[in-house]
Design a protein around this nucleic acid. Structure first.
Lengths: 230, 230
DNA sequence: ACCTCTTAGGGTTGACGCGACCAAAAGTCC
DNA sequence: GGACTTTTGGTCGCGTCAACCCTAAGAGGT
């Protein structure tokens, strides 16, 4: 912990960013993620997760956020540590330990996403052939997302401040990849008390106007996440 | 990821090691963990998690295991990454990023534990006043242990190869801190198929001899854990 | 004004899981 | 043999959840 030995390794922070966009073939919402094309060896020309070296004066999450803003123009509200990857052979050149975060962006945030020359979005389930061990990382992030949405209200991170239950249900359906019964879904969500009605309704629909909800502010810091309040 | 900038930070790997030992007052099994006394600044004289700098030629988990063997004489079978802590202010001197693992040791492994001059075991729930942010880390590891035992067969990591259901139940009771109904516990465990009977029974007890079980080998690599098969 | 279409939202039912509790089984010890 | 202790199996009641019904409430066409 207090070693003064100079280490021959670099520490990087990368992020798996998920946004929900229509699938190119089915048209149904599905997770996408942005990748950046590598412009130098190793893996030059390959797609890789957005990331960069950890700066001396930045916390880990801040570093992930800053890199993300620089490369993709995104500033996701939900940013959470995923895993630290550090096998000696994961990079063919120098030793690199990557602390990987994962993020969820809301549609209104997603609208501000910029596609730079070397940034492109892909359907998360289809990505393959990435640089380093990033294939494994993306797969693991997807598993975590699908697992966590079943026991945690992270789905709220995918919708705007005000939303209908149908929109929230669409998020669950997009992530889980299957349809859900609207009535049962409604009961589940209301039972867990993570949303509260705003009293307003959507107008101008060609059917019964749905009620608008917002996520319960009491649980904004509820999920079991690390707060390094040292 | 491929930065060649020389970073002014060090990367350490520490481990929260849990073993079940009788509580000093109640006598009932409860989680304990080993701590090492710091012999230099910062936090000289304070207790801290066993750990050390990451060596160039070691994977992260290997580093955790090696340090553990050196300081405590333990080689736990269950070793799992917990979290990466890297706030800029978590160490008063240089910037240190710690990748923390947590481990579970079985009673037969625990018997080989050596208490060095600067190593001592403590009741996990009572530790306090540790160096750096290690209080937070221990608390988080305990939360994870208690959460994970409810949905994953990690309890097997706390028992020997052959065990009775009563022994396995004691593990759950020790971790969760409450008694469980033997009959219901039995049904739950058998229903999830994580154990299989060996056919043998314990003899020499002053009551009905319990059957011996072993954990189902099919699930030794079943838990959703990262395998960096890059 | 009325009908139709579509989605919101509520109700009911049956299967399942789980905790509380009871009862039988199988050994040792006296 | 009888008392004792722990294992092991059985039952019952409750809460949860998925599947499936129904009604409610708007827009738009005729």
């Amino acid at each position: 912990m207090d070693s003064t030995t100079q280490q021959c390794l670099s520490l990087a922070v990368s992020t798996v960013v998920f946004a929900l966009r229509p699938h190119p073939s089915t048209g149904r919402p599905t997770p996408w993620l942005p990748l950046v094309r590598r412009i130098r060896e190793p893996y030059e020309g390959c797609w890789a997760l957005p990331g960069g070296p950890l700066e001396d004066d930045q916390d880990l999450a801040d570093s992930a956020g800053a890199t993300l803003l620089r490369t993709t123009g995104l500033a996701p509200r939900h940013l959470e540590q995923l895993y630290a990857f550090g096998n000696v052979d994961r990079s063919p050149s120098e030793r690199v330990v990557s602390i990987v975060y994962w993020a969820l962006v809301r549609p209104d945030e997603d609208a501000r996403a910029i596609d730079g020359d070397n940034v492109e979005w892909f359907v998360a389930d289809d990505v393959q052939g990435l640089a380093f061990d990033h294939d494994v990382i993306v797969r693991y992030a997807l598993d975590r997302l699908r697992a966590k949405i079943t026991y945690s209200p992270i789905a709220h991170a995918f919708v705007t401040d005000e939303f209908t239950l149908a929109q929230l249900r669409e998020v669950y359906e997009a992530v889980l990849g299957r349809t859900l019964d609207p009535a049962n879904f409604r009961r589940q969500i209301l039972a867990q008390g993570t949303v509260e009605p705003t009293g307003r309704h959507v107008t101008g629909t060609s059917h019964r106007p749905p009620a608008l909800y917002r996520s319960n502010p009491a649980l904004s810091r509820h999920t079991l996440t690390i707060e390094e309040t040292s």
